[in-house]
């Protein structure tokens, strides 16, 4: 992004350092009182999220910071987006598309949401299709969204069979070679990866990002 003014750098700093009140107040002031370009403010938010993501990867930030960062981003986004007058400019080029969902029978979504957030702030276009997703829905979503990577999430041990069945269904639909498939969740390990036929597994959001970047040929 282009060089930042002192005020812009301050906004990025507040958001990256979890200074929520200061960050939101400054964003409001810039947007509502000073007429700042909303697209520029969103760009600054993304720069702040880059820092948050790196701190998470470095083990300085954990779930509390990721969730808070996501909420700050939502709050500023809700103020900025209605102010965008002209048609939005070209979306920044994305590294790749990831379709993600929790497999059928499992209603858990905390881990999936964290992975979606981390992929998003790392430059991926993410489509999250929710929890308890039937295998057939994954197939129709793959056909429509044409992702590079499919992420299957599951917290319970029942997810092992659901993941295996989902991957088999994708295979039967002739789509298996079009996508890389990664699995993740509290009980997932190499034994489960081999059982389900997934390409890879990850135990946290950083590993998910690293897998996707690797598949897209980007330095992780």
């Amino acid at each position: 992004m282009s060089e930042m003014t002192e005020q812009e750098a301050r906004l990025v700093g507040h958001l990256a350092e979890m200074e929520e009140d200061e960050g939101i107040d400054l964003a409001k002031k810039m947007l509502l009182e000073e007429g700042a370009d909303p697209m520029r403010v969103l760009e600054l938010c993304r720069a702040a999220m880059d820092i948050v993501g790196k701190k998470f990867e470095d083990g300085e930030y954990f779930l509390p910071e990721l969730v808070l960062a996501g909420e700050m981003l939502d709050t500023i986004g809700a103020i900025a987006k209605p102010l965008i007058k002209s048609a939005p400019g070209e979306e920044p080029r994305r590294l790749g598309k990831v379709l993600i969902g929790t497999v059928h029978g499992d209603l858990h979504d905390i881990g999936k949401n964290i992975v979606s957030f981390m992929l998003d702030i790392n430059g991926f276009e993410v489509k999250d299709i929710g929890i308890d997703v039937p295998a057939a829905t994954f197939v129709s979503e793959i056909e429509a969204f044409k992702p590079d990577v499919v992420g299957l999430s599951g917290f319970l041990t029942l997810a092992f069979d659901s993941m295996k069945e989902t991957i088999a269904t994708i295979d039967n639909a002739g789509l298996r070679n079009d996508v890389k498939i990664m699995i993740g969740g509290g009980q997932i390990d190499e034994t489960v990866r081999a059982y389900t036929g997934a390409d890879a597994f990850g135990v946290n959001a950083v590993e998910a990002v690293s897998l996707c970047k690797g598949w897209m040929g980007v330095n992780a």
């Binding site: 009980q187 997932i188 034994t191 489960v192």
Partner: peptide
């Protein structure tokens, strides 16, 4: 391990 118990 749950994965060994269930899939092994």
């Amino acid at each position: 391990s749950p994965s060994i118990l269930t899939t092994g």
